[in-house]
Amino acid sequence: MSRVWRLGGALLALAGLFATARADILVADLSSHSIAITTGFTGASVVLFGATDGLADVVAVVRGPERGVTVWKKGKVAGIWANTDSVTFVGMPSFYAVAATRPLADALSPGTAALYKIGTDNLKFETKTPTDPERVKLFAQALIDVRKRAGVFSPSPEKISFLGDRLFRTTFYFPAGIPTGTYMVEVFLVRDQDVIGGQTTPLVVSKVGVDAAVFNFARNNALAYGAIAVVMAVMAGWIASLPFRNT
């Protein structure tokens, strides 16, 4: 049953995309298609803007690269708080933000929101090993809470505002600690609580300049990196002691 539902959803999405292409009822783009993490990086904002035929809602979702995540629960062992229990999820987005012209519950039917995984409540939580559903629910909620506090999951949907009838815009904020990789920005055109069109735009987050060089060198030539770090430290120690030599 669920497979039929999913297939239907995929066809619907495809149909929606074709509709977009044909009628051009949704055009959207980002103010920038890349975020460069440099030495002074403290976070970045990217503006999503576009135009519709003015008769529909717009919902946008930003998803960071998917990764496995282990969530630990602390418990008291002999008077000390320690990590005692864990659940490992696979394929979780490392960044997740939603923006909409109206509150999500008004703009989308629950089925549609679930189908397109819109909103943190509709993320799919697959565990690495079979786990009791109650536990999955508990740890999934914890994962969402922890990441919302870290700023990598948006705490509540951002507002997409209309300028006039057709133009819309919203701003997504990316904090300093965001993971690197290719992010996907999905824009959905929604009418009568159903998705009728969509567009996906990539957003590349990467380290550039000296930082990228240091990071890549540390990963790819770990031994040489370690040796150079030591030599630099020895040199720094020696140089610093020179002015004090004659005292």
Binding site: A218, A222, Y225, G226, I228, A240
Partner: peptide, 24 residues
């Protein structure tokens, strides 16, 4: 330092150098 850099990729040389400038 070398072992941690090699096994765990956790040595931040930029951080270490900044601490050193003050430290030495």
């Amino acid at each position: 330092t070398i072992l941690q850099a090699f096994h765990n990729h956790t040595v931040d040389a930029v951080l270490a150098m900044l601490l050193l400038v003050g430290g030495v």
